[in-house]
Design a binder for these strands. Structure first.
Lengths: 210, 210, 210, 210
DNA sequence: CATGAATGAGAGTTCATTCAT
DNA sequence: TATGAATGAACTCTCATTCAT
């Protein structure tokens, strides 16, 4: 029972990701998602409150998974610079590997009035916290500029990553997102690292947007 | 005649900005916009093809105005660093001064499938070009790192600004956007300037996000 | 399930016949038909593509029924003259018995641009074929003038019947349509029968139009 | 003034015939007719009460012209048989020469609820009267069967002509309508003429529908 | 738990008609 | 008379949600 339920819940969620990614939130019909998931329309309402809830749930579930996964991986890393590098790589790789999810996160999710206008987004805060912890560690380790407020820096880092992914999604996900990872690392570190230790890391450069 | 028409077109456009900003694109009813503009529902269709066209037109018209205005202002500035600083300030001030417009640009516009999926967005390209010109000038003047591809840098700059504004909009436009200008200037310049000339500009810091 | 669906389909079809007959196609609202059928507006769209399709379907379904019914009845008759007489009687009786259907066929159906302009009307062709077969049989039996082209004669017969019914409908269906049957038989037979065998059949006469 | 007005009235009427014929009554927009006539939308309402009135007026005006014209021409003819033959020829030639008018009369006019449902149609009665007079003359001259009621015979004649024209219009006006005139004359005369004088007129036959 | 037929509120859009100029 | 911008009532169709089976 448990498992069957959980499996159907998952199937609906995956179908929703796929359909939302393809058609956009408002263009997606509940009946399409149902068909994609191989269930009846009404069944969806046994697992989710409504269409909006379906979208929000995608975000919440996936973010929880991602945060748990990232947090575990970061514990394997040493100093803040190493952690930040790793986070950036994982962030980009995650979306590269799940392009439909990327589309939903970067575009469709923002079409849910509930998501956009309610200030909840607990999971987003948790992700920002994850970044914030790295920044704080970096400042404690005297690797990061400590005159910068953490609240701003974590948003700066997240914002850059978010923008990179959005641009990639809107450009049709045609180029290799991971290839930009090192460059992004370079740019972000230049912004946040203390002066002495920076200079002369990345001069890598490959595939370029247009 | 001319003026009356133009004035009504403007009134509808402004009403649409206001209503879209308040309610979101899909939640906004054409009849609400009509009422806000003080015209009949049908009148809107004398000036715009449909609801989608209304949204797209807001973007196009406003971008054209902004680009013309910014370009003129930038011509008053000297080197690329001065120009970039000024652009950043203008960008943030513009949205600060027109918060409804900011909401439409950063959130609602992305809800128009036509806007998101059609690769047009000519005006957006023109704005990126404007940034690109500054970057190229900076590289010619040996002020900006020339090993970085212009296409990426201009997106990096735009992306950061875009994200800053989006964050502000989504946070309820409660803090002073312009106050972040100098910090953003600092962060972005650190990323793009050549090593020697950077260091030790901004350590300013004021109002902070949350 | 089967039956419930079929029954609802039928109910909507009958309601449409009634409303179209009363108000005319363009004056009929889908919501009126729904109310008449005792279903929700949206239900109609589960069974018919749109309002136009509803009208076309009335024609197709009813014609299929009529053609099958007529063809079976005609097989009971002997020579072409007997068959033609019987067809005329059945044609007029059918509409007399279903005055709403008559109104839809003779007036409203011609208001559907799809019906009027698309050259389909397969069922109409099938009905003309039915008449054509009688004419051909009549020519084979040397009962009908064989110098006349079948294509014209069958249209002449159908046209006369069609006109008789239209006149009756437009006159408010106030008189007895069947009473004209024998006269029509007389007139049509005079037109198509070979010279020798005609003369002196009908001198019947009763109820007269106005 | 008079003339200018009359000329504009005429222009609008002609434009309406053309547009109604092309698009059908309900698909025709008043603004299209205005453009075709080279006047402003509002101007039409100076000459006609509304869209329906425009359609009715086409019928009335044209019928008045036709009746006057036909009546004059028929006075040149001798007996009822000659007159009927001439009427049939004129009827078919008139529509052949004005195909747009034919489309409006045979199809679009029946889409005006006012035309179809109001029992007025004075002009139609006048035309039926014209035919009726021929029939009465024919009975007086002992050329036509006098056991048949005039009311029926005139409708039979009109109905046949009407059907012939309708069939031609609905078939796309692709064949020569006049070519059928003699055949129609033959068929109709067989129906209404007294037995002795008929037989052996038409064996003509040419172009045939499909 | 699952189904999917049925619901019905709701919104975008059209277009005949008006009326200030 | 003539204009044509403005009006706003009205209608078709969609689709999230429900509930009897």
């Amino acid at each position: 029972m448990r498992n069957k339920s959980a499996e159907k819940y998952q199937r609906i969620l995956d179908a929703a990701v796929k359909v939302f990614a393809q058609k956009g939130f408002f263009q997606s019909k509940v009946s399409e998602i149902a068909k994609e998931a191989g269930v009846a329309d009404g069944t969806i309402y046994l697992y989710f409150k409504n269409k909006d809830d379906l979208l929000i749930s995608i975000f919440e579930i996936k973010m929880q998974e991602v945060i748990a996964h990232f947090r575990a991986a970061l514990n394997q890393q040493g100093d803040a610079v190493a952690k930040l590098k790793h986070l950036i790589h994982m962030h980009l790789e995650e979306f590269q590997a799940n392009p439909d999810l990327a589309a939903v996160f970067q575009v469709e999710l923002r079409q849910s009035s509930r998501f956009m206008h309610e200030s909840e987004k607990m999971e987003l805060k948790l992700y920002l916290d994850l970044i914030g912890e790295i920044v704080e560690q970096g400042q404690r380790e005297h690797l990061f500029r400590d005159e910068l407020p953490v609240g701003l820096i974590k948003r700066f880092i997240f914002g850059t990553l978010d923008e990179i992914v959005s641009t990639w999604v809107l450009a049709g996900r045609r180029y290799d997102l991971r290839a930009q990872a090192d460059l992004v690392v370079d740019l972000l570190l230049r912004g946040v690292q203390r002066d002495c230790e920076v200079r002369g890391q990345g001069n890598q450069q490959q595939e370029v947007v247009q």
